[in-house]
Design a protein around this nucleic acid. Sequence first.
RNA 1: CGGGGCGUGGCGCAGUCUGGUAGCGCACCUGUUUUGGGUACAGGGGGUCGUGAGUUCGAAUCUCGCCGCCCCGACCA
Length: 446
Amino acid sequence: MRLSRYFLPVLKETPAEAQIVSHRLMLRAGMIKQASAGIYSWLPLGFKVLQKIEQIVHEEQIRAGHHPMLMPTLQSADLWRESGRYDDYGQEMLRIRDRHDRDMLYTPTAEELITDIFRSYVSSYRDLPLTMYQIQWKFRDEIRPRFGVMRGREFYMKDGYNFDLTKEDALHAYNRHLVSYLRTYERMGLQAIPMRADSGPIGGDDTHEFLVLADTGESEVFYDSEITDLKFGDREIDYDDKGQCQAVLEEFTSRYARTDETHDEALFNEIPEERRRVARGIEVGQIFYFGTKYSEPLGATVQGPDGKSVPVHMGSHGIGVSRLLGAIIEASHDDNGIIWPEGVTPFHCGIVNLKQGDSEADAACEALEKALESNGLEPLYDDREERAGGKFATMDLIGLPWRITVGPRGLAKGVVELTSRRTGESEEMSPEAAVARVAEIYEVNR
RNA sequence: CGGGGCGUGGCGCAGUCUGGUAGCGCACCUGUUUUGGGUACAGGGGGUCGUGAGUUCGAAUCUCGCCGCCCCGACCA
């Protein structure tokens, strides 16, 4: 992509309304524009990252055996009356009336609708287990939206729902989600720690939240420092194997890690003092097992092997896709701007032409652009009539992890410069070597 | 919803107290210059000062209403 043809409205100054670093950087990097309180337009750069994150979530859900689908954002109030949540949910639910005076709502979550789909078509235990999910816009009419996309009213969320015959099967689904979430966050370059949490309006007995440690997090968290040493890594796992999933759950939840809602001071104090940590965290996902809370009132039953009808055991599972952009930036930035992890970067590599209009520099940049593209990579070539300083500042701000700098001085020696955004380290090498190196970096991260 | 604050070219702000017909920096356009970490100079375009009413010879400025936005708190992926 040529920057001169792209739409990248970067700002030198920070808009006054932005308080936290991720919000400031998203506005300055031209990723989002506020439309109204807690509601944002996603400009091309922001949308690109949103899609990258969405893609990783899809891949990991499908890997775990879950089926993607899509449900509407506007729903009839009827189902919600049936479950009892039309009254319970309160002011946070945006209620709308259509032209026929029917009560509608903008979905804050979709347990009712998915359960209705299930009960319409599934009547035998032979169709279980079943897990379906969607990535769809949600709306929760927060009293006070803030922090940009971290606490918007409209937000993009992956929500998944499992249906199982027994509690044991449903807990396996719970564990499977935990494993898939660990993989998902790690692919985005994040460490998200599962913590025992409170179930809130979704209800249920078992629930874990996934938290990314960050000073600007909204939750206070308490944990045993040993937990941050755990990595899921690239281990192979059979998602149908109950034992394997259970073992991962135990590994990642055996140490103390709780949010303030469920914090237990006495238990916490049993950890050796030097390992006790009190910090803040950003919630980027949550998994629930809630049994028959929705299947009973909504009549989602199957016939078991014995011919008797029983309500199915369910759970629901969410990942805050739009919030993740904020969380990643909070966890990965410096004074000059964003530092994207390779897994979610909007462009794989920046190309900075230090002397636009110089025929050799222009030609070298264009050749680099083509070579990177033919390796399946997306470069962003800054071909604007800008000074070098301005181009560097823009690249640093938007956070591409790798940058190739091309100028007449280097070209005279047959080299360009490859720079890591994260470390700032530069290395001179031939253009061909730079392309090969970048291709290799992304091959490993694929 | 309780408490606090703000609304003036695209962005950041001054001007409001003490009423006199709108200004600065950045960005943008033109030209010259410059070019390895936000170049310098010259010229230029762009604002019914959130909105409605009132006071006044005269309102960005004073009064009242409304709308929007932000911050702290309770609530939340």
